[in-house]
Design a protein around this nucleic acid. Structure first.
Lengths: 205, 205
DNA sequence: CCGTTACGCTACGACTCGTAGCGAAAGCGG
DNA sequence: CCGCTTTCGCTACGAGTCGTAGCGTAACGG
């Protein structure tokens, strides 16, 4: 997660169990208290470790919450559902299923907000969370091109811009629907969204 | 902004200048310190008022920041640019211009995060900020229907769902592009986004 | 001028922060 | 088996923030 030495070092190794306990305790505290009222002392107590142990591993609240939240994005996958529309709809529902978790709702937006004036934190979020999502967009686009649903990329730069656009549209819409509008991303909404997106991508470019 | 009595009450009235000074000081502190390090004591000092005055008007940091940020959304307008695409592109650029301000980036996401476990705060955000944005979507849709660019609404419920979908797509994409991807919403991106959206809306429904 | 409310100021206990210092525990290499 | 090294739990600490209470003063309205 953080500093790792390539070869095994001497001395007592860090407890891996403590890591998982701390991250689980962080998610639990996020649900109960929310971001602003979450304290590291409380997390340490919940995890059954000393507060100093926590500070030895994470610089502060921001970084800890990023790691605690990022772990939940591991389950994002995109099996081949046969068509671009089905792939998009599937990933939208899957992404939404993660976002409705209270620990995600409370934590993700908070660290994004903090990242606006902390470049290191922004990079940590990008590496831990955003790239993990964007990978799915690349997969889905490649499949759609093989099927002939999307035109093959001519200009690689143009292709990269399109991928970024799709990514922002999908992730942005789901996040906004879930957190700002506070409405559920049900199959009906996912279908309507997918219809607009696929239709819009069909002839563009 | 908060409790108002319909008729003039007796006693010394609250200083309107103090309100604007506090809100301005809050935005200033958001830029310099960000959300987590912003303290109400510091805001009071910057505004030249006593800390108690601040607590008499706002319950806490969350509500204060919502009001401080909401004021900047007043400038959102949507002049008739002649076509649905032009209208959307215009509002996207305008919305993005507000979002790039550091006080918005730091404040908006933070209060949204807090609102996930504070219903009163969510309602305050909805009334102060979200509805102000959604109004533009309604205007744009009505104009497009008059021009014949969009089919007239048959089912009012279906129409409401479509408006919500468009709103989440536009606001979500712009927010995500600006805050998460940390890339600029320039005319090129706005054009590409608008093309996809208008094309996608064209035949749907 | 008098009642009422807002204001600035000070002080306060409670809490959180992040760090330092200590002795004990847990691996690793010889 | 034994040192060496690093982590661990624990305690304590100064610094800073929180939100409130109490006070005397200032500003309006009738």
């Amino acid at each position: 997660m953080q500093s790792r030495s390539p070869v095994s070092r001497t001395g007592r190794p860090r407890s891996a169990a403590a890591d998982t306990a701390i991250l689980a305790a962080t998610r639990e505290a996020l649900v109960e208290l929310g971001w602003s009222k979450l304290t590291l002392g409380d997390v340490a107590t919940r995890a059954g470790v000393a507060k100093t142990t926590l500070y030895r591993r994470w610089p502060g609240k921001n970084e800890l919450v990023v790691d605690a939240v990022a772990a939940l994005f591991d389950e994002l996958e995109m099996p081949d559902r046969g068509s671009l529309a089905a792939d998009i709809e599937g990933v939208v529902l899957q992404f939404a299923a993660i976002l409705v978790r209270p620990e995600i709702k409370s934590g993700l937006m908070a660290v994004v907000a903090e990242s606006t004036h902390d470049d290191a934190l922004r990079e940590r979020i990008r590496a831990s969370i955003v790239d993990r999502q964007k990978r799915l967009v690349l997969e889905g686009r490649a499949r759609a091109q093989q099927r002939g649903e999307l035109p093959p990329e001519t200009d690689p730069e143009e292709a990269a811009r399109t991928v970024d656009l799709i990514f922002d549209m999908v992730a942005g819409a789901v996040v906004h629907r879930t957190l700002v509008s506070a409405e559920p991303v049900d199959p009906e909404w996912a279908g309507a969204f997918t219809r607009v997106l696929v239709l819009g991508l069909g002839r563009s470019q």
